[in-house]
Simulated assay, not measured.
Amino acid sequence: MTPTTPFLLTNDDGIDAPGLATLAEILGSRPWIQVAPQTEQSGCGHRVTVGQALAVEPRSAQAYGVAGTPADCVRLALSHLCPSVAWVLSGINAGGNLGIDTYLSGTVAAAREATFHGLPAIALSQYRKGSQPLIWANTGQWAAKALAVLLQEPLPPKTFWNVNLPHWQPGEPEPQLVFCQPSSDPLPLVYAATPQGYVYGGRYGDRLQSPHTDVAVCFGGNIAITQITL
């Protein structure tokens, strides 16, 4: 890595996840470095590791796997592995991070951690309808469309972008970029009682879709963009 590397790429699905590879492909010839968890850390929120060593596995001159959380990866990257980056891009997550998901998501936490340190950041997530497979080529196309705009868009201090891509299928209208507000509606509280305890069973697609929120925009087939303030 050179001191001029502009993009730090991370995620919470792990360094081998297809969404991270798709994000690197979008950047093309623009220099980047990946510092991402060695294993999936979905739903970890903004957890950080203290009191124990963070093992780092070099994958290449441009990629490091960290035995920690997404927030750990950003903290370690900015303090040690690549302190001169200009942007932090987190994702592309395999699953939506809409509304109050931003409090639960490791993907979003990585962007938030960057913002703590004064760097512009974008979290990107791909909403998935139930068990339907994702077509990463489509994801890359719509993510590139969003990045082309957001990398040029003024970003006030102490804020970052959260992008959610719709689960687009061939034949559907082309998704449009929609700047909107994050939903504050709760996720469905559905638990099944089992001999071992209670198992969460709320269906993501059953959440409320208040008008003009990111949930309604993304579920409606467009690219939901929210500006999150610390």
Rank of each mutant, 00 (worst) to 15 (best):
V190E: 13
L134S: 08
Q126A: 15
K129F: 08
L119H: 02
L147R: 10
S125I: 15
A192W: 15
W161R: 03
G118A: 06
C180W: 10
L119N: 00
G201S: 11
D185Y: 02
R128K: 15
P188C: 07
Y191S: 09
E113H: 01
L155I: 01
H167E: 08
L124A: 02
L155E: 00
E153G: 00
A111N: 03
Y200R: 08
G130N: 10
L187M: 15
E174R: 12
L165Q: 03
P182R: 10
L124Y: 11
A121F: 10
G197N: 07
Q132P: 01
L177F: 05
V163D: 00
G140M: 08
G197W: 08
Y200G: 06
L151I: 01
P186A: 09
T115A: 14
A121Q: 06
A121G: 02
A121E: 04
S131R: 07
P154Y: 03
A193T: 15
G171L: 06
Q181T: 10
F179K: 12
G99L: 00
A146S: 07
E172W: 08
L151V: 04
R128F: 05
K145W: 05
P133M: 08
P154T: 01
T115G: 11
S125F: 13
N138Q: 13
A114D: 02
G106T: 01
Q176F: 02
Q126W: 15
K129V: 09
Q132A: 10
I122G: 04
Y204L: 14
E113T: 13
A148K: 04
H167Y: 06
Q126C: 15
Q126N: 14
W136K: 11
K145F: 08
G118Q: 11
A143K: 03
G118N: 10
Y200I: 05
T139K: 12
I135K: 12
F179L: 10
L147D: 08
V178K: 12
P173R: 10
S125G: 15
A148W: 00
L147Q: 04
S183M: 13
G202T: 06
Q141V: 10
Y103E: 08
Y103R: 09
P170R: 06
G140P: 12
S131P: 00
P182D: 01
W168V: 03
D185A: 14
G106W: 00
A137T: 14
I122S: 02
P120N: 12
P195R: 14
G201P: 00
A114Q: 02
V178L: 03
E174G: 04
F179E: 09
T194E: 15
R128N: 06
L189F: 04
Y200K: 09
A146P: 09
P133G: 09
G140W: 07
A111E: 05
L104F: 11
Y198A: 15
P173D: 04
G99P: 02
F179V: 03
K145Q: 13
V178G: 07
K145M: 11
T107C: 14
N162I: 01
G99I: 00
W161S: 05
Q181A: 11
A110S: 07
